[in-house]
Design a protein around this nucleic acid. Structure first.
Length: 718
DNA sequence: TTAGGGTTAG
């Protein structure tokens, strides 16, 4: 190495650095750097500047900073490159700090300095400082150039100062740089962020020669405003105009495909990226992870993920979220742990993993992440406080949830999350109480609030209250009921046995009922064995858009099983196989000593299988073998249960100390048999057993359940 | 001779 050092001159080093940059050969960057220097020598201005720009391009700000410190002298270029690097890399404090140091060192900024600093002022929401800088710039006889104006617009965009943004727009329009496309591009971005997508559209349409940035800004602008169809349309127009895609465009288009579930188009873009080399950009692979996850091809997403050489925090967050939404929450948590030893998670990562914890009731893990969030300062960042709240609510820890609720800055989502806790427990009075507190605190309820409220009323048989809130919602809060609200009312009436009223309500709806509405009626008819209305609901369900109806086929099966129409059940089952409708296998999770254990229905591979079954058999014999083991009538409503919670509870009993509570989470409904059995177990072992299923939170204690057997009562009667 | 715009995850 030393020999090589003496052989090669500065010119060659600079060529080498240039080569690394051009080839995006990040791996060799440090090696070239090692070649040039040892710890005692200082870098020349030229070599230093070249190295600086290389590291900045590779987003390696640590090494860039190191090079900056090792330079024998620095010029304006050196400062500008590093300031720009910090701005682009999201290190805003460092960027502004470096700018101050530059002034302190007596170096005057130029037109290259201002854009980065202005942009940064916007990102840290310090528009005052940005505008002071802008004024100083003009007073120092700098003529603001295009990028400077663009940056002022960007600053307005981030600080949310729409009025000033428009003024700058007007100013720019009157001046010569109006003709340049970059101003228009910044405007598209600004208007999109303000939700004024029509304004953005207008600016876009006036650009005569749109460049790749204009197209991308418009595509992502639509996507940001929840209009992915329009984003795709713009992309198609872009292709017709033969504008070449780059990595940012393709990532934005893939993102739009993910929103719309356009798998085929996404796959085409994947192939295109492979052909053109764009796949080597992490932004593109990240977008693909999201696409495959949302299209339920999680293994494909994992494949893309594994192949990324330099996974960043977005790659990890995307795969964690992907695993979670594809019912692989345990694996999502595992990936989070793996990530933590390599990279620092951000608030979005935490939100994703907390959501996974909530889904499977991993309370200990959730608490651990809570502690981690507080340690790293992310505990009060963005949506993290609400994500923590949601986790506690989903894990059934209402007391801890209240503690969290009282310690955070509350928004409407925080209140709604607490309300879902009461809805989940079928605690109507609790929900109403909370709603009143909410109103007293001057928080305006939104459509989501009423969904939880109606749901809580429905599950505690408070029909009159529910109907009253449905009325209040429109009359006092001017909220137009949507399909979900209507479904809640149908459910509310149906559950209390008012089937005719529920039907009449559907008929009177001002909008076309959807599958969920007929599904709610069908479910009520199943419970009350109302054949006539049930078949009517079933017919309506089947006659609707098939891809949406398929989700209700298990419910249909259950209904026909319940009323003894076995030929219908058989017909539906064949249909389900033909259409490829899969039923999620029953799965229950139990957390023991911070480790999550999953049990699938009929799982016979568990190392403690024998012990678990021995414990369960003990209960079966105590309570009457016939009723609780043989009476698992797979043809009845119980087919939706799977009974996996029994295995989880058995495992919990064996592996925890006597008297300790056991908490189980389940992905399907709990059947009446299991419900009775767990009541019995709680009495015998004198332990609290909590089971959260998809419908309700059950806390079993001394042979009783907190749900008061709601939802099971009728079956006991019949 | 090197520099500044559009950026994927909730």
């Amino acid at each position: 190495m030393k020999e090589l050092k003496t052989m090669v001159d500065e010119e060659t080093f600079i060529l080498l650095i240039d080569l690394c940059e051009r080839m995006r050969a990040e791996r060799y960057a440090s090696q070239v750097y090692d070649l040039i220097t040892d710890s005692s020598t200082l870098l020349s201005l030229r070599t230093g500047n070249s190295l600086l720009s290389m590291f900045v391009r590779f987003r390696d700000l640590g090494n860039a900073w190191y090079v900056f410190g090792k330079m024998s002298e620095r010029d304006l270029f050196s400062w500008n490159v590093l300031i720009g690097g910090y701005c682009k890399g999201g290190c805003f404090d460092e960027c502004l700090g470096l700018y101050d140091r530059m002034l302190w060192a007596g170096v005057r900024p130029d037109v290259y300095t201002f854009p980065s600093v202005l942009r940064t002022c916007g990102r840290v929401k310090d528009l005052g400082r940005g505008l002071r800088l802008f004024r100083e710039m003009i007073e120092s006889f700098f003529v603001p150039d295009l990028m400077t104006m663009t940056s002022v617009i960007s600053a307005c965009e981030f600080t949310g100062d729409e009025r000033l943004g428009k003024t700058v727009h007007g100013y720019a329009a009157k001046h010569v740089f109006r003709k340049d496309v970059s101003i228009d591009n910044a405007l598209i971005q600004m208007y999109s962020r303000f939700g004024a997508w029509e304004e953005a559209e207008r600016v876009f349409s006036t650009i005569r020669t749109k460049d790749v940035v204009s197209w991308t800004a418009m595509i992502s602008g639509y996507e940001k405003n929840g209009l992915p169809e329009k984003a795709i349309e713009v992309y198609k127009n872009m292709k017709m105009e033969n504008v070449a895609l780059d990595e940012i465009t393709i990532a934005s288009v893939i993102s739009a495909c993910a929103s719309l579930g356009l798998l085929d188009m996404g796959v085409e873009l994947h192939k295109y990226a492979k052909r053109t080399g764009l796949l080597s950009y992490v932004i593109v692979t990240n977008a693909l992870i999201d696409l495959y996850s949302k299209c339920k091809l999680i293994d494909k997403a994992l494949e893309v993920f594994q192949r990324i050489p330099d996974k960043n925090v977005i790659s990890w967050s995307s795969i964690i979220l992907g695993l979670h939404i594809n019912n692989r929450s345990v694996q999502a948590i595992y990936f989070f742990r793996k990530m933590k030893v390599r990279l620092i998670p951000n608030s979005i990562t935490l939100i994703s993993v907390l959501s996974a914890c909530g889904k499977i009731g991993a309370l200990m893990t959730g608490k651990e992440i809570h502690a981690y969030a507080l340690r790293t300062g992310l505990g009060f960042d963005g949506f993290v406080p609400n994500a923590l709240l949601d986790m506690y609510v989903k894990c059934g820890k209402m007391k801890t949830a209240w503690k969290q609720f009282n310690s955070i800055e509350k928004d409407i989502a925080s209140w709604n999350t607490m309300l879902t806790g009461y809805a989940q427990r079928g605690n109507g009075p609790g929900a109403i109480d909370l709603f009143n507190k909410m109103v007293k605190s001057d928080v305006k309820p939104d459509p989501v609030t009423f969904i939880s409220l109606l749901c809580a009323c429905g599950r505690s048989g408070m029909v009159e209250n529910g109907l009253e809130y449905f009325r209040i919602m429109a009359e006092n809060y001017y909220i137009v009921p949507n399909l979900k609200h209507y479904a809640c009312v149908v459910d509310l009436l149906g559950r209390s046995g008012k089937l005719e009223e529920a039907h009449a309500f559907i008929i009177s709806m001002p909008i076309q009922p959807d599958q969920a509405i007929w599904g709610a009626l069908l479910n009520a008819c199943r419970i009350y064995r109302n054949v006539e209305l049930g078949e009517l609901a079933a017919r309506n369900l089947i006659n609707m858009n098939e891809s949406e109806s398929l989700r209700y086929y298990t419910l249909l099966c259950n209904f026909y099983a319940e009323i003894g129409k076995w030929d219908e059940v058989a017909r539906l089952k064949i249909l389900m196989t033909e259409k490829g409708v899969t039923v999620d296998p029953g799965c229950s999770w139990v957390e023991v000593k911070g480790k999550i254990h999953a049990f699938l229905t009929g799982d016979q591979t568990h190392p403690q299988e024998k012990e678990i079954n021995a414990v369960l058999d003990g209960f079966y014999s105590k309570i009457g073998f016939d009723v609780f083991k043989n009476n698992i009538d797979a043809s009845k409503a119980d087919i939706l249960c799977g009974h996996s919670e029994r295995l989880a509870i058995g495992f919990g009993l064996i592996n925890t100390a006597p008297g300790m509570p056991i908490r189980v989470t389940k992905n399907l409904y709990m059947c009446q048999n299991c419900h009775n059995m767990v009541k019995f177990i709680s009495k015998v072992v004198r332990r609290e057993i909590a089971v959260r299923d998809t419908e309700c939170f059950h806390l079993f204690k001394d042979g009783l359940c907190s749900c008061g057997d709601a939802g099971y009562k009728l079956r006991i009667l019949s």
